[in-house]
């Protein structure tokens, strides 16, 4: 089983929990309840602690996410440059609020507090691709590309 392999590889680390959870999430896309229970048992860390770590960091998600992860920056610089309007536009097109996944499972829409690329603001990220200097007008065409590849 993949999870067991990951755990065995990282068992020697001083604090193996976070690397293990990150790698599992890379493969499975999210952390299911059974996965978390399994990790807790294999690493002999209390379940409450594993669950605490998984809920603490925003890098972990406990719900299955869509194929494409849309991440919109709502930091100070992006906010000033109008990221609110882009968020409204995205909400309207996708029909979901930040933190939710569309019904067809293609997009997960999240917001972030700063991406660290304020000069490119307002900035949006889909998967690993960055879209800087966003305008509400650009949103349509970008989303369309991802719906019909």
């Amino acid at each position: 089983m993949d999870i067991d392999k990951i755990i065995d590889e990282n068992k020697g680390l001083k604090i193996p929990l976070i690397p293990v959870l990150l790698k599992i999430q890379e493969i499975e896309g999210f952390l299911s309840e059974s996965t978390i229970r399994h990790v807790s048992r294999r690493l002999s860390i209390p379940l409450s602690q594993v669950f605490g770590v998984a809920t603490f960091y925003s890098a972990f998600n406990l719900k299955p996410s869509g194929v494409n992860k849309i991440c919109l920056c709502e930091g100070t610089a992006c906010h000033v440059k109008g990221s609110t309007r882009i968020r409204e536009k995205l909400e309207r097109i996708l029909g979901v609020k930040p933190g939710e996944t569309t019904k067809d499972g293609i997009f997960t829409f999240t917001t972030i507090n700063c991406m660290g690329a304020c000069a490119m603001g307002p900035i949006m990220k889909i998967g690993t691709e960055y879209f800087g200097k966003m305008t509400p007008g650009k949103v349509d065409s970008i989303i369309k590309e991802y719906i019909s590849p």
């Binding site: 309840e33 978390i36 209390p46 379940l47 409450s48 602690q49 594993v50 669950f51 605490g52 809920t55 603490f56």
Partner: peptide, 26 residues
């Protein structure tokens, strides 16, 4: 030596609870 409860979430949503809000087995 139990570890049945722990902190979950963070910031304003931080709370003490059992894992998955279900009654703990341990």
């Amino acid at each position: 030596m139990s570890g049945g409860i722990g902190f979950i979430n963070r910031g304003a949503k931080r709370e003490v609870s059992t894992p998955f809000h279900k009654s703990s087995e341990i």
